[in-house]
Design a protein around this nucleic acid. Structure first.
Lengths: 144, 144
DNA sequence: ACCATCTCGACCGATTTTGTCAAGTTATAT
DNA sequence: ATATAACTTGACAAAATCGGTCGAGATGGT
């Protein structure tokens, strides 16, 4: 399960996907029904990660750095929820040894999850926001 | 990331995979370095789910109901960590509407995750414990 | 210079995670 | 029979995470 925070982040990005003009935090919050002060944090995280940019002052707001078809779910989830691998030792982007693993080379848990981790990584890093917008209505799904 | 509890459960099952004789909780706990009282809870959950059975009294212990090659990671993870879909509305086994979703049919978040959910489900439900034991050493991995 | 807006860090209650413990109940070897 | 090793249940609790709030300040268009 993804976190509520991640869900907000995804919705915020989709709210920005329609326009090139900066959008106010307040407008995104209202449109997507997200607590404003919480959304501020989220957008800040996305900004630090380089997914969005902001302009200050009057007529300020947030906007996407790249077009929606170049942004993957994986990037957003990693930014908000942290590593997406099932085990720290299987994370490509944020490798970390498991606390209780003495010999990673022969760890059966790691072996068990190797293919799973690869499959989910591929899925997450291949799905872009263009896909979501394209198949807005499940009944008229478009194949990529 | 899977929980520590799930990791314990997986290791416990692998500890049972070698024999048909009942294995003592204490022995599993010691061998796999799992807190005993905690492991009791975990095994109980697995038992309620029908993955393992137990015998009481002297010469008691736990043992697998099915052979390792018929037990998938998905079953264990669902038992211990709950639904494995990224969104409640995408769970096949434990469907639940998202709290904040007014129209599921046009929900862009759901659309975004449709393929991801399917990919991870397939991976989790196709990987069995036989696979893990087979490729204990990553260097001599066997293809299924 | 103004002021809407973004930025930063601290804080906070509720829930989940990761266990621990006590008091039973059950089965079986002897 | 009965002692005993083992399973079962439920309550409890410290620590981490989640979901969100708040105050004060920095920034930049007009």
């Amino acid at each position: 399960m993804i976190s509520q925070k991640a869900k907000y982040a995804l919705r915020a990005i989709m709210a920005l996907a329609g326009t090139k003009e900066p959008v106010l935090i307040g407008d995104i919050a209202e449109q997507e029904n997200i607590p404003k002060r919480f959304l501020e944090q989220i957008l800040l995280d996305l900004k630090h990660q380089g997914l969005v940019m902001s302009r200050r002052g009057r007529i300020g707001g947030y906007f996407l750095v790249r077009p929606p078809e170049d942004i993957t779910i994986g990037e957003v989830l990693r930014t908000i929820d942290g590593p997406l691998a099932p085990l720290p030792c299987l994370s490509k982007m944020a490798y970390r040894a498991c606390d209780d693993c003495d010999d990673e080379a022969t760890c059966r848990v790691k072996a068990l999850f190797a293919d799973v981790a690869e499959a989910t990584r591929r899925a997450l890093d291949q799905t872009t926001f263009a896909d979501a917008i394209a198949k807005k209505h499940p009944l008229v799904r478009a194949r990529r």
